[in-house]
Design a protein around this nucleic acid. Structure first.
Length: 575
RNA sequence: CGGGAUGUAGCGCAGCUUGGUAGCGCACCGUGUUCGGGUCGCGGGGGUCGCAAGUUCGAAUCUUGUCAUCCCGACCA
């Protein structure tokens, strides 16, 4: 391709509305252009990168035995009503009506559609297992799109769905996908960590995320997830799922008897601990949440934080938020109290489900709210002063240096970009939508399903986050829009131009993806642009051509050698 | 949903305090010059100043509303 014809415009400055490097660089280097909030045009260079990633994904998915299909982007509400998600998916689901007033939605994911396909097409265990996938634009009306391609509303995703006749089959399909994913990201030049993650409200199911770790090179932190990991045994998990053991802490308040004590204006744990001159670990904190519209009280040790996803899962919920003050007031009114946030306790709460974190059951002679403003019960004990809730679960957010549950080594934490997710669905959709097959024994059974996603456009952005320098993008060779760019330094110099054209022609004829910068620009402009757009190799034809020498530069290492044009061509052909 | 900030040419910005009919750099067009890391000069084209009301003889500038964008937060009691 000739730069003089390539549809690209590089900018001399970064766009003012971009925050993270991948966003800044992709806009500045002319790869993408914003059309609306969270919605981007993919210009020629970007589209080439995306197609490269797609093809790697295709090759590995096909090699893993999956078959590519394409499902509609617009879906009828009926399927979503069948699965039960029409009412619970929330505002992320972009809903619309057609001219007949039928309700439709833009596909944020395709479990419903794929289940309907399987329901119609798979009738016997002899047809299983099956794995179908597609690569397609998805639309999710995110609360807050940001970071360019890392969290857009419209984005390109590969989604695969497996169907098996039993759990063992699903385990195998899952394993195959996990291996394929690792290979896909490796081939894209991305090191990923496969971490355990939350699998939503479905009991007993398993899910892993593939994270690109980004802590070490973060001017701006593009990683939206906290990943906990153990360097000793390899345990790793998303913070919404990470389980840990705690270091020793004081959990006995050693008060001789229980006493209602004045604790004026201690609305936070720190204030309360300071006021009573006690460690926060002997306070039992009580937080009111709203899960799917129902009130929930969560008890946890004062020095620890609640992990909302874990808490939500205890109640198989879809939505969780902390209660507002007016909601707490409502609970107080209903229960015959008049306390405010800071003095809430589990005792006597009406219309509220209570769950206690594992950390509170060992507390002795502790401090707890009793729904009286400016007072706490000091020296309380379970079973004596307050009943220990029946529901006890792990709802605690892990912290760095907590002990690994596998090997007790201290856990570390880092930021990660989630580029892939694999998930054992089980029969959630097949049961709800009555998608069954006849098994060996003649019985009709629901499919055992798995689903497997890769954010194609996010993977491209993650690659930029990991591979760039102060001059621009540094694409891994496997996903670069072009492998090599030929730059004649002066378009005035006939020898330079003809040698450059010759190199370009030879590489083109050998089907190498090659650019030639034939623009009537000065050398500085061309070299800056070559660095900015991040082509892995550059062949510069300059003055030394009188000695039959050109410069061969590696964008990634900066290594530069001077060789003959023929050697340069061969070097590229031998990559 | 709450808070903050910002909307002026494709991009980056000034002008607004103190109203008087819009400017700079980059990019673009023409021309000359220069030619190995974003040359220099001359000449040009391009903007109903986010939108809508209001105040005023007159509004980019003041007032109100509205929309959009970016950031932070979404309450850890």
């Amino acid at each position: 391709m000739r730069m003089s014809k390539l549809f690209v415009q590089t900018l001399r400055e970064f766009p003012s509305d971009a925050e993270v490097m991948s966003h800044k660089l992709l806009v500045r280097a002319g790869y993408i252009r914003k059309l609306a909030n969270g919605v981007y045009n993919y210009l020629p260079l970007m589209w080439r990168v995306l197609k490269k990633i797609e093809n790697i994904v295709r090759e590995e998915m096909d090699a893993a035995g999956a078959q590519e299909i394409l499902m509609p982007f617009v879906q009828p509400s009926e399927l979503w009503i069948e699965s039960g998600r029409w009412d619970v998916y929330g505002k992320e689901l972009m809903r619309l009506k057609d001219r007949h007033n039928r309700e439709m939605c833009l596909g944020p994911t395709h479990e419903e559609v794929i289940t309907s396909i399987a329901r119609e097409g798979i009738h016997s265990y002899k047809q299983l297992p099956v794995n179908l996938y597609q690569i397609q634009s998805k639309f999710r009306d995110e609360i807050r799109p940001r970071f360019g391609l890392l969290r857009g509303r419209e984005f390109i995703m590969k989604d695969a769905y497996s169907f098996d006749c039993d759990e063992a089959g699903l385990d195998k399909s899952y394993e195959i996908m996990a291996k394929a994913y690792k290979k896909i990201f490796e081939r894209c030049g991305l090191e990923t960590k496969m971490v355990q993650s939350d699998s939503g409200a479905i009991g007993g199911s398993v899910s892993h995320e593939f994270m690109v770790l980004v802590n070490e090179n973060s001017e701006n932190n593009a990683g939206e997830n906290d990943v906990f990991y153990c360097t000793k045994c390899g345990y790793s998990a998303n913070s919404n799922h990470a389980v840990s053991n705690l270091a020793e802490a004081e959990v006995d308040g050693k008060f001789k008897f229980a006493k209602i004590t004045d604790t004026p204006e201690t609305t936070s744990i720190n204030e309360l601990a300071d006021f009573l001159k006690i460690p926060a670990s002997i306070i039992c904190k009580c937080l009111i949440y709203v899960v799917d519209g129902k009130y929930v009280a969560a008890l946890i040790r004062g020095d620890k934080a609640v992990e909302e996803t874990k808490l939500m899962n205890v109640f198989a919920g879809n939505d969780i938020r902390i209660a507002r003050n007016d909601e707490i007031e409502e609970i107080m009114n209903n229960s015959g109290f008049n306390a405010v946030a800071g003095f809430i306790g589990p005792k006597g709460l009406k219309g509220v489900e209570i769950v206690a974190d594992n950390t509170v059951k060992d507390l002795k002679n502790f401090v707890i709210g009793i729904n009286q403003k400016d007072k706490h019960l000091v020296g309380a004990n379970w079973g004596v002063d307050v009943e220990l809730p029946q529901r006890i679960a792990d709802i605690r957010l892990a912290e760095e240096n907590d002990k690994c549950i596998e090997c007790s080594a201290p856990l570390k934490v880092t930021k990660g970009i989630e580029v892939g997710n694999i998930f054992k669905l089980g029969t959630k959709y097949s049961k709800a939508m009555n998608a069954t097959f006849t098994d060996k024994d003649g019985q009709e059974k629901p499919f055992i399903m798995g689903c497997y996603g890769i954010g194609i456009s996010r993977t491209a952005a993650a690659a930029v986050e990991r591979h760039h320098d102060e001059n621009g993008i540094i694409w891994p060779l496997s996903i670069a829009p072009y492998r090599v760019i030929v730059v004649p330094v002066s378009d005035q110099d006939e020898t330079q131009m003809s040698v450059a054209e010759d190199i370009y022609n030879k590489l083109s004829e050998a089907n190498v993806e090659v650019l030639i910068d034939d623009r009537a620009e000065r050398a500085g402009v061309k070299l800056k642009d070559a660095d900015l757009i991040g082509i892995p190799f550059r062949i510069t034809v300059g003055k030394t051509i009188k000695d039959n020498l050109v410069e061969f530069k590696n964008r990634s290492t900066g290594e530069t050698i001077t060789i003959t044009p023929q050697e340069a061509v061969e070097k590229i052909l031998n990559l």
